[in-house]
C-alpha cells in the first residue's frame, strides 16, 4: 500500500432504514469508512447484516436515509439522470445472483454492446465492436462466436458470472463493487472466477470493494477488511489485524465459523 493514499470513496454516518413504525428495519446504521484508490477492501458479515444495502447506496441505486457519500474527496452529486450516468462510468457492480442479473429478453450481444456504448464507442465500426467484445470474452475464457445471438439463460451460472466480468473488462470503471460474486456459483468454478476477477483488478488497478460472508476468502484477497454486524462496522483494519488479533467477539465467531462450515454442517441440529 503506497503512503500517498488518495481517498476514492468514503462515507460518514451512512444510514438506511426500511419501512416505518413496527416494520422498521435499520439495514445500515451510521457507518463511517474510507476506501483508498487501488485498494481491495472486503466487507464481511453474516447474511442480513446490511452488506447489499450498503453496496446499493454506494452505487447510488438507493438513497441513504441519512449520511453522506464522498467520491474522490468531493461530496457525491447524483441528483439527476445525467449526473448519475457520469457517476456510473466510474463505479460498476457484479451482483450476487447471475440468474437474476440479466434481462432474459435481451441477447448477450446487447449486454456487451451497452458497455461499449457507455464508453463512448457507439459510432465505432461494427468490426471494431466485435473485436472488443471478442477480446472481453476471451479474457474470461468465453468464445464470443459461440455466445453471439444467444440468450443469457442459455448459459450456466458460472458462464453468466464470467460474462459479468467481461462486462467490467469493457467498462473499466475506477471502482468495482462485487457483492458476493461467487456465493451462488458451484464450488468447481468458484476459484476460476475469483482468479479472473483478481486478474482484472490487478491489470487495471481498479479499486475493488469485495463483499463476502467468507472471512477466509477476505483474508486471502484484501488489503483492508471491514467487519459488518447488524448494519454497523464493528471492526476494520488490515487482514492480519482483524484475523490474528480480533477485538470483537463477533469477529472471533466469524473466524471460528470458517472451518466449521465444512465440518459440522449437521441438519439434525437445525
Amino acid at each position: 500500500m503506497p503512503d500517498d493514499k488518495k481517498s476514492c470513496l468514503s462515507g460518514s454516518g451512512l444510514t438506511k432504514i426500511f419501512g416505518l413504525g413496527r416494520q422498521k428495519t435499520v439495514a445500515v446504521d451510521h457507518v463511517d469508512f474510507n476506501f483508498y484508490e487501488g485498494e481491495i477492501v472486503s466487507i464481511v458479515g453474516e447474511s442480513g447484516s446490511g452488506k447489499t444495502t450498503l453496496a446499493k447506496m454506494l452505487l447510488g441505486l438507493i438513497n441513504p436515509t441519512e449520511g453522506e457519500v464522498y467520491f474522490q474527496g468531493q461530496k457525491r452529486d447524483i441528483s439527476n439522470q445525467k449526473k448519475k450516468k457520469e457517476y456510473w462510468k466510474s463505479i460498476q457492480a457484479i451482483f450476487q445472483d447471475p440468474y437474476s442479473s440479466y434481462n432474459i429478453f435481451n441477447k448477450i450481444d446487447a449486454v456487451l454492446l451497452d458497455c461499449i456504448n457507455m464508453r463512448g464507442g457507439r459510432n465505432l465500426p461494427h468490426a471494431k465492436k466485435v473485436e472488443l467484445m471478442t477480446e472481453a470474452c476471451s479474457f474470461v475464457s468465453l468464445k464470443f462466436e459461440e455466445l453471439t445471438n444467444k440468450y443469457p439463460f442459455e448459459l450456466s451460472g458460472g458462464q453468466m458470472q464470467r460474462l459479468m466480468i467481461a462486462r467490467i473488462f469493457l467498462l473499466k470503471p475506477k471502482i468495482l463493487l462485487a457483492d458476493e460474486p461467487t456465493s451462488m456459483i458451484d464450488a468447481c468454478s468458484r476459484a476460476t472466477i475469483l482468479g479472473m476477477l483478481m486478474n482484472l483488478v490487478l491489470e487495471t488497478g481498479m479499486t475493488l470493494i469485495f463483499i463476502t460472508h467468507d472471512l477466509g476468502l477476505a483474508y486471502y484477497v484484501s488489503d483492508t477488511i471491514y467487519i459488518m454486524e447488524r448494519g454497523k462496522f464493528v471492526e476494520s483494519g488490515s487482514p492480519d489485524e482483524v484475523i490474528l488479533q480480533p477485538k470483537e467477539a463477533y469477529t472471533r465467531r466469524l473466524i471460528s465459523d470458517v472451518p466449521k462450515i465444512h465440518e459440522e454442517w449437521d441438519l439434525s441440529t437445525v
Partner: peptide, 10 residues
C-alpha cells in the same frame, strides 16, 4: 438485479 444493472448501464 437486471433492472439495477440496466440503470448502471446508463
Amino acid at each position: 438485479d437486471h433492472v439495477n444493472l440496466s440503470k448502471l448501464s446508463g
